[in-house]
Design a protein around this nucleic acid. Sequence first.
DNA 1: TGAATCATGTAACTGGTTACATGATTGT
DNA 2: ACAATCATGTAACCAGTTACATGATTCA
Lengths: 197, 197
Amino acid sequence: MSLDHILLGLLTKPHSGYELKAMFDRSLNYFWPAELSHIYRILQRLEDGGDLQSWTEPSPKGPDRRVYERTAAGRRRLRDWLAEGPAFGDERFTYLAQVFFLGEHDDLRETLRFVTELRDVFKARLSTYRRIDREWRSGRGPYPDLASPEGFHQHLTLQMGLHRMRAAVRWGNEVISQINERIANAATDARTERSCQ
Amino acid sequence: MSLDHILLGLLTKPHSGYELKAMFDRSLNYFWPAELSHIYRILQRLEDGGDLQSWTEPSPKGPDRRVYERTAAGRRRLRDWLAEGPAFGDERFTYLAQVFFLGEHDDLRETLRFVTELRDVFKARLSTYRRIDREWRSGRGPYPDLASPEGFHQHLTLQMGLHRMRAAVRWGNEVISQINERIANAATDARTERSCQ
DNA sequence: TGAATCATGTAACTGGTTACATGATTGT
DNA sequence: ACAATCATGTAACCAGTTACATGATTCA
């Protein structure tokens, strides 16, 4: 039921489904991907349940659009969700599952390639987050004011992203060293074995 | 399709569904939760698809059990998955979505409570990971030998957990300071405003 | 005139959870 | 006798993805 709450959270002002998708891709996408088709279905369900109401209006650009607004019940649902405290237990990391089974290859160079690719993706994400952080702090770009409650809280999630990616890059670098050591040791062992025959 | 691959990965030796669930909860649970009912269905599907074969045998304890073993095709499927390189794009963090909208409360003490709870959960996980790491390195406990390929690769995911949780706890501590500062500033502002009236 | 963007949806499907049903064996 | 653990499954449901269908408006 989380997309429900996220959409309720984004609707501090009336927005269309299309617009909500754009907001998603700008700010939430880093920890919560969403498809347009899914968004439309959830908006309908929320309206059926009385958490949203909608009307159509002409768009400044393109065809008419359906615009959604929170009802009092919707706002209550959102606050109830927040009041429940942090929700855990859904975290899934496909790439960690892959790392877990990488011994299957029986070739550490494969592991090295895999982890290097991982590390590089983390690096790229880190520099994206850093760029956003610079723009945000300097007041450039479309980001909400850091002095406002919305801006402050949204920026907390970016800070988490920065911490997380720094940790992930460090992990990658450490692991790459460990693999290289193991590869070197394996080579030495092989030589020793040959010279002892 | 990831649970498929994970089960194929766990089946280096024949195991029953019940046993696979226990293996899950011991080691993979931290980045991939799974329900028994789901595991049983995927095992059936994998057998239908020719990636596994099974037979029943008496259990050392309890009723007969159905034991699954990888076929050559299953092992190939697993390797193909690993060879595709790291899979991204599914990461969802409900608690970060909650933080994102915590401004809705209009009361920073609520944010403080929420983030403190988060930080404490991260702390608890960190100390769990540290305990496992100690046991693993000292050879106590049910963990595979760190010198073996399986042990080495499985331990890499624990290292990621350690890095990730250290980062998360640091984030929590930083955010708690920031919130306390904002609360203090708000109080000062209120006093200043009163004294100027 | 044709590509890009704006805009809304439906249908079929896959992945995963929750609830339910059943029963054997072991240890207290 | 009873609880805990071992053991396997089905059915209904919810969440999310992919593929498809449709059409208006804007701008080069």
